[in-house]
Computed example of a mutant assay.
Amino acid sequence: MTLEIDTGTGLMPVHVWEPPSGNGPGLLLLQEIFGVSDYIKERGAQLAGLGYFVAAPEIFWRLDDVDLDPDAPDLLDRAIAVLGRLDWDLAVSDSVAALEYLRGRDTGVGVIGFCFGGGLGFNVAAASTPDVLVSYYGSALPDLLELAPKVDAVSLHHFGDADEYLPPETVDRIVASLGDAEVHRYPGAGHAFDNPMPAFHHQEASALAWQRTVEFLSRTLPIEQGTS
């Protein structure tokens, strides 16, 4: 279902997936640059199936003329152009508003983000206080490392060793700033390796990273925490 959250400067559309029990710890799901795509919605449904109450805000909601047709041959160029018009600070505050909505349900809360959302989630974790953070190849991380001391959430990070946007030496620098975070690196996997698009997907890395994500969440944000 979709609802609207008051950000203080407007109503932001948010996709919500409820767990079978109707209650559970909250997870803020942050999109890639392609928006809340079918892929992100699938991950939202899967997380809800595990017992989490999931909310995925439409981060591009403030922008006009956003056309991210998944069948467009120039989809990546379109998405990059949209991202270039985004106000990062507003994206952070909008995401924090969605996190506070989840926190208002009196459960534990976490953040999970992919690519653009992986970096945004890191910034959200610095600006707010989620219990856990899962970041998949956060593309903005190299520019956010000064925030690392403010991130108190128990964290899990995934990186592909064949990522052209985050090459190994850049990941080395990121990892050195992450402190006690759990980090996994995947040989042969490029950027966005969890995305099912053929241009990005790496089947083995995607499956293993998801397995590790599910295990991490079960350990750090247990379902019992939010069940009645």
Rank of each mutant, 00 (worst) to 15 (best):
S95R: 07
V96N: 08
F34S: 03
V171G: 12
H158Y: 12
I112D: 09
F122V: 11
L208I: 13
E169C: 10
A56G: 04
A176L: 09
W17M: 14
Q31H: 02
P130A: 01
L47H: 02
G110C: 06
P130C: 01
I223E: 13
Y137N: 00
T213C: 02
L75C: 09
R219L: 12
H158L: 02
V66N: 03
V54P: 01
V92G: 08
R78W: 05
A55C: 04
T107K: 00
G188N: 06
D152K: 14
L144I: 03
K41Y: 03
G24E: 10
L144H: 11
F216T: 10
A72E: 12
L145G: 08
D143M: 11
D94S: 02
M12R: 13
G119D: 12
T107N: 03
L86F: 06
A199Q: 07
H15I: 04
T170Q: 13
G49H: 00
A209P: 10
P19E: 02
I40D: 08
T2H: 02
E4I: 05
S37H: 06
Q211I: 14
V183R: 02
M197I: 11
E32C: 02
F122C: 14
R43H: 06
V66D: 00
T7A: 11
P222H: 04
I80A: 15
A97H: 04
H191R: 13
H191W: 03
K41D: 15
A56V: 05
L145R: 11
Y39V: 00
A205L: 07
L141C: 13
L133K: 14
F34Y: 14
D180A: 12
P196M: 09
A56K: 13
F34D: 04
G119M: 12
R173L: 08
N23Y: 08
L178W: 04
I174P: 04
L3G: 07
T170F: 13
L208M: 12
D180E: 14
G179S: 07
E204T: 10
I174F: 08
S228M: 13
A48E: 03
G44A: 09
R219D: 15
L28A: 11
D194M: 08
Y137Q: 03
D89M: 13
Y137W: 09
V111E: 10
T7C: 12
G160K: 09
R62G: 06
P168A: 10
N195L: 02
F34M: 06
F193V: 00
T9Y: 09
V154W: 15
E169F: 15
E182A: 05
G22V: 03
G110E: 05
Y186N: 01
T129F: 05
I59R: 06
A189D: 08
D180P: 06
P13C: 03
A140Q: 11
A48C: 03
V124L: 09
I33D: 01
V132I: 02
A162I: 00
L178I: 09
S135C: 02
V171Q: 14
L86W: 00
P198R: 11
H157G: 11
P57L: 01
F60A: 06
R105H: 07
G188H: 02
A181P: 05
G8E: 12
